[in-house]
C-alpha cells in the first residue's frame, strides 16, 4: 500500500468518525425531534423540496443536453461561444441573486423558485455535454462517417455512448447543487426544507435547524449515489473498462 492510499484511508476514517459523532450527539440531544413531532409537516416540506428539484433539474436536462448536442454539430459550431456565455451568466450571478431576480419578474412562490433553480442548473449540464461530445476522437467520427453511418447514427452509436459518462456527471453535479440551492427557495416563498432551516436560524432553535438541514444533506448524498448507479448502467461496458485500465496503467 502506498502513502497516497494510506492518507486517503486516514482522511476517510476521520470524516466518518466526525459524521458518526455528530449523529450520536444529535440523536442523544433529540435534535431530530421536530421530524417525529410533526411528521406531516416534514413530509410536506420534503415533498415540496423534491418537487422544486425534480421539475427544475428535469427541465434543465431537457434543455441543456439537446442544446449541447445541437451546438456541437458542425453547422452550429460558431454559435457555441454565444450560448455558453449566456449560460455562464446564469452561473456567475450568486444563487441568491438569481432567486431575487426571478422573484422580480415572477413574484413570490413556487414558480419563481423553479425558474431560478432551472437557470442555475443549465450550465453544468451544458458544459459537460459539450466537453463530453468534444472529447470523442475525430478519427473515430471520421471512420464512422467513412463507413456510411448517417449523422444521426454517428451521434447515437458513437458520440453519445462515448460522452455518456461526462454528460451524466454534469447532470449529477447540477442536481446535487440544485438540492442545496433549493433550500434558499424559502426566501422567495418557494417552500421546501429551507423553511425549517431558516426558521431555526432566526429563532436560534437548533432542533428545527437540524431537522431541516440534515435531511437536505442526506438527500444530496443519496442522489449523488443514485446518479453514480445510473452512470454505471448507462455508460457502455467497453468504455468503462477502457477508462479503468487506463487509470490503472498510470
Amino acid at each position: 500500500m502506498n502513502a497516497k492510499k494510506v492518507t486517503s484511508y486516514v482522511i476517510r476514517l476521520i470524516l466518518w468518525t466526525l459524521v458518526i459523532a455528530f449523529f450520536f450527539w444529535a440523536i442523544s440531544e433529540n435534535m431530530f425531534g421536530k421530524i417525529f413531532e410533526e411528521p406531516g409537516k416534514f413530509m410536506e416540506l420534503l415533498g415540496r423540496h423534491l418537487e422544486l428539484v425534480s421539475i427544475s433539474a428535469g427541465l434543465a436536462i431537457l434543455t441543456s443536453v439537446p442544446l449541447g448536442i445541437l451546438i456541437t454539430r458542425p453547422s452550429f459550431r460558431r454559435s457555441e461561444w454565444l450560448i455558453v456565455n449566456i449560460a455562464n451568466l446564469g452561473q456567475t450571478i450568486p444563487s441568491l441573486a438569481v432567486l431575487a431576480l426571478a422573484m422580480g419578474f415572477l413574484g413570490i412562490g413556487l414558480k419563481a423558485a423553479i425558474v431560478a433553480l432551472y437557470i442555475y442548473s443549465l450550465l453544468p449540464i451544458l458544459q459537460n455535454t459539450i466537453a463530453g461530445l468534444d472529447s470523442v476522437r475525430p478519427e473515430m467520427k471520421d471512420a464512422a462517417k467513412g463507413m456510411g453511418l448517417t449523422p444521426a447514427q454517428v451521434l447515437f452509436k458513437i458520440e453519445l455512448p462515448a460522452a455518456a459518462s461526462s454528460i451524466i456527471a454534469g447532470i449529477r453535479t447540477a442536481v446535487v447543487l440544485n438540492i442545496g440551492t433549493a433550500a434558499l427557495a424559502y426566501l422567495i416563498g418557494g417552500g421546501g426544507l429551507g423553511v425549517w432551516i431558516f426558521t431555526g436560524i432566526q429563532l436560534f432553535d437548533n432542533q428545527t435547524l437540524i431537522s431541516g438541514a440534515v435531511p437536505v444533506t442526506l438527500l444530496a448524498v443519496l442522489v449523488d449515489l443514485l446518479f453514480r448507479g445510473i452512470e454505471y448502467l448507462l455508460v457502455p461496458k467497453g468504455i468503462r473498462l477502457a477508462r479503468k485500465s487506463a487509470m490503472e496503467s498510470v
Binding site: 471512420a143 452509436k157 467497453g238
Partner: peptide, 23 residues
C-alpha cells in the same frame, strides 16, 4: 447516394478508429 456508396466501400484509417463502446 453518399451513405450507400460508403457502405459499399471499405475504409481503414491510421489509428484504426475502432469504437471503444463496442465489442
Amino acid at each position: 447516394d453518399k451513405i450507400k456508396m460508403r457502405r459499399n466501400t471499405g475504409y481503414v484509417i491510421q489509428s484504426n478508429g475502432l469504437f471503444p463502446n463496442m465489442t
